[in-house]
Design a protein around this nucleic acid. Structure first.
Lengths: 174, 174
DNA sequence: CTAAATTTGTTCACTGGTGAAATATGAGCT
DNA sequence: AGCTCATATTTCACCAGTGAACAAATTTAG
């Protein structure tokens, strides 16, 4: 596959040419958007790749990590959908997979019997603790050359973007 | 669906708790990684949403845009695979779709008959020119509140990340 | 206290994307 | 020429994720 840098160079030229034909295009913002999408996708692929030896995919892993990070180690499909940005349909599949591997349990709630309670098992915790450390070097390497100020800037700008996107979705129908 | 800001707040807390249990985790970098993935995914969904009224999906659109941005309006499946980061299999499907809609043509190359030449049609150009302008307001709005310095920073940091990722993939097997 | 409306989760049918094998052309070697 | 190896694309079988319809439990309104 082509190096990301080549794809970016190609995108830069492409947007340059298009913005000559269509001058009212916000070229700078379009470049940033494409950059973000390309880098984001590459990160995604890198994560997927790094998880592959453990035979778990990104969304299953993320779901498990949320449970792991909870003080009580439990949640419900609906809540997990919200925080993983997954549809309910897919969460059913994810839970099926994780239950089958013995990493979580799934049982009916006492108070509200519509609800399903999902809980990470001891085996699930051990799995996470074994899986995480080998990822650390790559995570660190991705941000090689970032000063502390760079990291603060990047965090600030991404959070601002998130804020803008939230507003964008709310505005249309108040 | 939950607001992105809530997901981010939840992620911040989660990483805080996990890094107490696993102190050698690079917590700052892990936060930035998750932030990037979350914002990237939300951007992706926003693009997909914005394209939906035109009944075209993101990867089909991206492929068409690359052809549009080319001086000669043509390319080959292999080249398009590289620059869209799509597998060859999927490029076959994309080309099928775009040909069926009359937005591109697909024909055998003269010089190398293994190759297939893909070319954007006049209808394809009209489609792009009609589709783009309505996207501009949203693209601009996503970066609302970004100063010129912010935009330069963001571009610089994303390009540095891309560079790091390229090195990460090359180093393992030289 | 019952009937309608809402919430929660699952099933089903479909779209989008991937890896492995198949096909076909081209390039290099002897 | 003939043989082998590499390249370019497609086909096939499968995994991941989505929207619509459904089922069960709870809340709300009359």
């Amino acid at each position: 596959m082509a190096r990301l840098g080549d794809c970016i160079a190609m995108m830069d030229e492409g947007i340059g040419r298009v913005s000559q034909v269509i001058p009212d295009m916000p070229a700078a913002e379009a470049r940033l958007t494409r950059l973000l999408l390309m880098v984001g996708q590459t990160f995604d692929e890198a994560v997927e790749q790094a998880l592959k030896p453990n035979k778990i995919n990104h969304s299953d892993f993320l779901t498990l990590m949320i449970l792991y990070s909870r003080p009580d180690g439990s949640s419900t499909p609906g809540e997990l959908c919200e925080y993983t940005s997954q549809g309910a349909t897919n969460m059913t599949r994810i839970a099926n997979v994780l239950v089958k591997r013995g990493l979580i349990t799934r049982g009916a709630s006492e108070e509200d019997r519509r609800r399903v309670v999902i809980r990470i098992t001891p085996a699930g915790r051990r799995f996470v603790q074994k899986l995480l450390p080998p990822l650390f070097p790559r995570v660190s390497a991705a941000f090689a050359g970032f000063s502390d100020a760079d990291k603060r800037s990047f965090s600030r700008l991404l959070r601002k973007l998130a804020d803008n996107l939230d507003r964008l979705d709310e505005a249309p129908s108040p």
